[in-house]
């Protein structure tokens, strides 16, 4: 446990030290290079903002309209049948759209059931192996203005569903 925390605290500083030392050894003008790169980053964020804004507006509707609850209530009988905790459904869906909204729901579950309950463990594992698919697809494809994402969404959803299923099976085996 302490080793993991130590490693994670070391991660970002270690990456920085490595890059700076490597750059200095290869006689790159490191500060100039940093500033040049940072400028490119600013432009990227500017292109991300409209995409993020559009997505967050849709998330706002989804969260507050009761649609998410209705969708989850419709799906919960099927979820019960396969032993999927119904309380984790809103989080599983939200995870695809918005990282911050998903984190909010995750912490609600932790507060209500504790992280050491079965559902607490399940959502912990599930969050590790899934990704904000909608957000990522929109940001990446918007930045190059490709209109058709073709089979990307299908493939990403299948991989994510496999992650969710694997989380459930692994949690059942370990803590069920």
């Amino acid at each position: 446990m302490r080793l993991v925390i130590l490693l994670s605290d070391m991660m970002i500083p270690a990456v920085m030290v490595y890059i700076v030392l490597y750059g200095a050894r290869k006689k790159v003008d490191i500060y100039d290079a940093f500033v040049e790169g940072a400028e490119k980053g600013m432009k990227i964020v500017v292109t991300i903002l409209p995409t993020l804004l559009g997505l967050m507006v849709a998330v706002g509707v989804l969260q507050n309209s009761g649609l998410l609850e209705i969708l989850c209530r419709l799906a919960s009988p099927a979820a019960d049948k396969i032993g999927f905790p119904a309380e984790a459904l809103p989080l599983t869906l939200m995870r695809l759209v918005s990282s911050s909204a998903a984190t909010g729901l995750l912490l609600d579950i932790f507060a209500k059931y504790t992280p050491d309950s079965f559902i607490g463990r399940f959502v912990s594992v599930m969050m590790c192996c899934t990704e904000t698919v909608f957000y990522t697809i929109s940001v990446y494809f918007m930045s190059i203005k490709a209109k058709k994402s073709r089979y990307t969404l299908v493939g990403a959803m299948i991989a994510n569903a496999a992650g969710v299923a694997a989380s459930l099976i692994i949690c059942k085996l370990c803590w069920g």
């Binding site: 790159v28 990227i44 967050m56």
Partner: peptide, 28 residues
């Protein structure tokens, strides 16, 4: 919230593109 996220992102993401540019230029 989208805007505040982007303001934070403006700092952190640009910091990473800065370091990445050093890594690109040095051949890392």
């Amino acid at each position: 919230e989208a805007v505040t996220t982007c303001i934070t992102m403006l700092g952190v993401l640009s910091m990473w593109t800065g370091f990445m540019n050093i890594a690109d230029k040095s051949g890392l």
